[in-house]
Design a protein around this nucleic acid. Structure first.
Length: 468
DNA sequence: TAATTCAGCGCGTAC
DNA sequence: GTACGTGCTGAATTA
């Protein structure tokens, strides 16, 4: 059985808007109105996709393997959606009550400090309270007045305690509304499991996206986030959770694709990459404190994301000039990366698209735009895609191979979730050790670059424990 | 006129 | 850089 989606062909070979469902796509691309009848609709969908696959000239042979992979992945994602993931509903409710209690206290504390009640969830009302009633100096202007976002409140919080409490309240409300109430709403009453929808065309880099609910942005960390993640668990005590994630996958891919000797050497020696960058930025003899390492880590990530000095300055809380200096130093210390990035931009200019190691393309029409701002934005998109997209290709290939492996053995263990560089499984106790070995071997074996990819695997009674 | 729906926006979570 | 979800707000639509 082979599965096809006509949109894959167009999205992988042109720059048309990815944000279209099948019906909108057919209207836009072929001026064809699909049937409202479900049965006819599915026939139309199959027919047009199959027809498209037969027209060889529409498909550049260089992206045939990506097309083939996406086709084979369709039933795998479908299976994962159908399987879903079990959630301990009672436990989640209990955590929700704890959060609600703490949140209520913060709320009352805020009213007390301000001397009146207002809706703290309303950015507009917070603006009025802080900047008009309390007369606190304003910062950045936005369409609706002055921003009260995290950055602004953190700054204000240095002088006015009220801002800190609003931040704490916001964090709690975010957890409660999105991750407690939001998840409780989507637990399937029949299966008691959460069944997300994976969007195979979700991101322009080739990444998956997940919606209804989005299981790819469940909070991580200690405290409430860990407690929330611990609600995701096997349904039966005969199973454990197994989490396998690629270690530093994007930086390792960057090392392989750029061939930068300094980056490769750092990884080969097993050195801490963020500390290494920190010494480049702050001097070989500097004592690398956790703060300096944190800055270096942000620089490393920023470079992968094609971030600007301005963007980086927000993350590490310095001036744009200082942040730009860090980025420049990074390129000076890893010259292979600079050359590699330049070759990406040259390719984008020449071809109008950039591509991953496996030939997945992203069209970048903006690189030839007359507007300088648009060109700069397009260049960041171009830089970002080959790294992030290659990582996406790698984990998709691994999923394909793991799925085939699981099918052949008629095992009880199942693949449940994908979170960009991480795969989550529920594994039967009798298969646990063997699964760990096989999954690692498959995942680490996908990418042939000069630098080996490493996979961390942990098991535990739930998602939180198995994160290691 | 009141209630409901919708779209845009600000914000925050993940990798 | 790439996503998605929630709540608020004001406008558009419906009853």
């Amino acid at each position: 059985m082979s599965f096809l989606d006509i949109r894959h062909y167009k999205y992988l070979t042109s720059s048309i808007d990815r944000n279209l469902d099948f019906s909108a796509f057919m209207d836009f691309e072929h001026h064809y109105q699909v049937s409202e009848n479900k049965h006819e609709y599915s026939i139309e969908r199959s027919y047009f996709s199959y027809k498209e696959s037969l027209v060889e000239n529409t498909v550049d042979s260089s992206i045939q393997s990506i097309m083939d992979m996406e086709s084979k992945l369709i039933p795998i994602f479908a299976q994962m959606e159908r399987t879903g993931v079990y959630v301990d509903e009672k436990k989640l409710r209990d955590i929700g009550e704890d959060i609600a209690r703490e949140s209520k206290n913060k709320e009352l504390e805020i009213y007390d400090l301000v001397g009146e009640r207002f809706n703290i969830n309303s950015a507009k009302q917070v603006q009025v309270i802080l900047f008009e009633k309390l007369g606190i100096p304003v910062s950045k202007k936005i369409k609706t007045g002055y921003t009260v976002d995290n950055e602004a409140l953190s700054l204000i919080g240095q002088k006015y305690e009220i801002a800190n409490i609003i931040l704490q309240y916001r964090t709690l409300e975010k957890l409660r509304s999105t991750y407690i109430d939001g998840l409780l709403r989507v637990i399937n009453p029949h299966t008691k499991r959460i069944h997300t929808t994976y969007n195979q065309l979700g991101a322009s880099t080739g990444r998956l996206s997940s919606e209804s609910p989005n299981l790819q942005n469940i909070p991580s960390g200690s405290g409430y986030p860990a407690r929330i993640k611990s609600c995701f668990c096997p349904e039966s005590s005969e199973f454990s959770f197994l989490v396998a994630d690629y270690s530093q996958v994007e930086l390792r891919i960057l090392a392989s694709l750029s061939g930068d000797t300094s980056l490769i050497e750092t990884f080969v020696r097993g050195e801490d990459i963020h500390t290494r960058t920190a010494r480049f930025l702050f001097g070989e003899d500097a004592t690398i404190t956790s703060e300096l390492r944190r800055i270096a880590k942000s620089v490393n990530f920023g470079v992968i994301y094609g971030i600007t000095g301005f963007g980086l300055s927000k993350v590490i809380n310095t001036s744009p000039a200082e942040a730009t200096k860090y980025i420049d130093t990074f390129y000076a210390m890893y010259p292979g990366v600079r050359a590699y990035y330049q070759s990406i931009l040259d390719g984008a200019n020449k071809n109008g698209y950039v591509e991953t190691f496996y030939g997945r393309r992203r069209y970048i029409p903006g690189v030839r735009d007359s507007n300088k701002m648009i060109r700069a934005g397009a260049e960041r998109e171009a830089i970002n895609m080959p790294i992030q997209g290659t990582a996406a290709d790698i984990i998709k290939l691994a999923m394909l191979r793991i799925s085939n492996f699981l099918k052949e053995g008629t095992y009880k263990s199942r693949m449940l979730l994908q979170v960009h560089d991480e795969l989550v499984f529920e594994v039967h106790e009798s298969e646990k050790d063997m699964m760990e070995k096989q999954i690692r071997s498959i995942m680490e074996g996908v990418f042939p670059g000069p630098l080996k990819l490493l996979v961390d695997i942990h098991t535990g009674a739930n998602w939180s424990e198995a994160k290691g």
